[in-house]
Design a protein around this nucleic acid. Structure first.
Lengths: 360, 360
DNA sequence: ATGACTCGTGAGAGCGCTCTCACGCCACCG
DNA sequence: CGGTGGCGTGAGAGCGCTCTCACGAGTCAT
């Protein structure tokens, strides 16, 4: 600690203030105007003469003034930040590029709106309770919820507390909030039709968690795809996993037992498809010749596996951006009814489901 | 909007307040004590009689009181949140599990200290300027900087503004701050010795960016490892990349041209090693028989490649936790000198560098 | 009984900002 | 020449909290 730099009145050379930063009041004195006027200039109000504005701006620059966010928040009742709540066990977060990509989209759009991102990853129920208080306290202006599982009480509680929120993916029943999703059902359906079009007849699926919208919808789409192709449904062809590669591997092993004659697999995520791929290789099944496989997400991983994965591309970054747009809109107009935004997908074909396999 | 719910005095049934939440004052009135006392109870001060405490707690519960964070911050000059600044181009963020893992560690430790995480990912210079103002304004109590590149002015600026900060990895010259790192030099050195011990004589390296501490240190360690094994240094054996798999692939192609006789590769990240692996496979070079390869990080990816990668394990989550510990310590004692924490690494051997290859 | 303490509590100032309202000024009209 | 109406500016009240300080009541030694 330097020995008390003394109070040299208004001498202070620019930003060399020690201790706390300059206040509105200091700027006002420096510029010879009132606090109100400085406030107007700082906040870009049009009702300030050009001359005064210049003087104030000079004072601001000279003192290195930066508004105190807490003081501002206290009166505006806004924090200019939003929370992103990710409730997902470690496993998937680590390996799935889904989250980083979503984050990127969210972050970019928030930045465009001058908002900051508070990342919240409750590790247990206790942390989730603290999280709820935190959000209810108004630390953030709104919340983006992603990767919701069916039994999570958080969205309902936030709704009760009137915390503005948007959800990534179809929210669980009972929760009405704006959300952004892709048409998982339709995407899965067309992926299965693609496999059927290749002549595959015993098409299995590695489905996602059945407590998540994406998991349920993609499984449903799979079933519809089978029906479209007039193929019989068969529970032996369905294995549920958790979106991780390890889960995908386990599911694939199970499928090889329950339905050894399968000739195609639709996996509800690329990660699970990659896990399945490893198992198939170890089992000596050739991909795509013996077994064709299609993933979901079109993550960078899909192009890097051997063989590369056919996959359903979803615009993850764009989902992030759209989530923020919805949230910002509801922040500006609280009475706004909840909206749903559905983004489109595209089947990206690669070698894992190339033609010339089992038939055709 | 409901037609003005009228002012029914102190009737209000519990948390059914409309509009803003209850204030300290309201709780004080409800409990029949002063604001100061309620404040003491809420903040767990010991100087409150058990009896009064009970009464106040009941009032708090009844009104569903949650302190207003802005008001509190205004007087305490603390935000109870810290910023995590990641300045890294999209590419690596997407594929490298490094960041999610680090995040996990940071988030867990912050949570243990009752701190929140503000995630900051400036996309361009403009955003970085805004970021600086944001941090200087005191929105956060301190900052964790990771993935610093040598030319980034941010750390120096933050230092000038006296923003408490810690750095992940060795900070660039001129910046003095506490930091957490692994002994990259020693780890790389022993990885190279491991390869030499296998009888490899033409050991190449795919090094990381030379504007980052980890990139420089691992390359240096590689050179020391060669010297240890009395192997000649050779610039043809060195290719610089950017820690991504694509970069690793490009570097590997270049190495195959400049040094077609190489029999081992030390890659400064698993991602780069994986990219190299693909190139080697395409080039018909058998791993580990023709060419042994060692990666760095021991990410989940390392175990999933074919063949699985020998890799230097670093305790990434623990690095995150330690970063937070250092930051918290310097928050509590501003005069505290900068410290360096070095965590240990471990070489995890897998098939990509199995014995029985070129020699031995 | 008196003074010296401790201990729990209340009064009140103040953190730095925004925003409403009032006011003075000038241009313009009748 | 007095009235009218913007328009730019200042005064001042708060936002909800913490924290210092003063104070009354009890405890104990003198």
């Amino acid at each position: 600690m330097p020995p008390s730099t003394a109070a040299t009145g208004s001498t202070g050379t620019a930003a060399e203030r020690d201790g706390r930063g300059a206040t509105l009041d200091a700027v006002a004195r420096e510029a010879g105007v009132s606090r109100a006027t400085v406030s107007r200039v700082v906040n870009g109000s049009p009702k300030v003469s050009a001359e005064v504005r210049r003087v104030v701006e000079r004072a601001v620059a000279k003192l290195g003034y930066i508004p105190n966010p807490a003081a501002r928040s206290l009166v505006t009742r806004r924090s200019d930040s939003v929370g992103l709540v990710i409730t997902e066990p470690a496993g998937r977060l680590f390996e799935d590029p889904f989250f980083p990509r979503l984050l990127r989209g969210i972050s970019a759009e928030l930045s465009a709106h001058g908002l900051q991102l508070v990342l919240l990853m409750p590790e247990d129920d206790d942390a989730e309770q603290r999280l709820e208080r935190y959000l209810a306290a108004g630390h953030v202006d709104g919340v983006v919820l992603v990767s919701l599982h069916g039994d999570d009480p958080l969205p309902a509680h936030l709704q009760a507390r009137r915390v503005p929120m948007v959800v990534g993916g179809r929210p669980p029943a009972g929760v009405t909030a704006s959300y952004v999703d892709v048409d998982n059902r339709e995407a899965a359906r067309s992926a299965v039709r693609h496999l059927a079009g290749l002549g595959r007849r015993r098409i299995a699926t590695i489905a996602g968690p059945q407590d998540m919208g994406a998991g349920v919808d993609r499984l449903e789409g799979y079933r519809e795809g089978l029906a479209d192709a007039r193929l019989p449904a068969d529970d032996d062809l369905v294995a549920i996993a958790d979106f991780t590669s390890e889960g995908g591997a386990t599911a694939m092993r199970r499928l090889l037992e329950t339905a050894p004659d399968l000739d195609a697999v639709f996996a509800a995520s690329d990660l699970m498809a990659a896990g399945a791929l490893n198992v198939l290789r170890a089992a000596g099944r050739a991909v795509p010749d013996d077994i064709a496989i299609v993933g979901f997400d079109d993550s960078p991983l899909a192009a890097a596996t051997e063989p590369p994965l056919t996959s359903v591309r979803q615009p993850i970054e764009e989902m992030g951006r759209e989530l923020v747009r919805l949230l910002v809109a509801s922040l500006e107009d609280a009475g706004r009814p909840a909206r749903r935004v559905l983004l489109s997908t595209e089947l990206v074909q690669r070698r894992s489901s190339a033609g010339g396999g089992a038939q055709r």
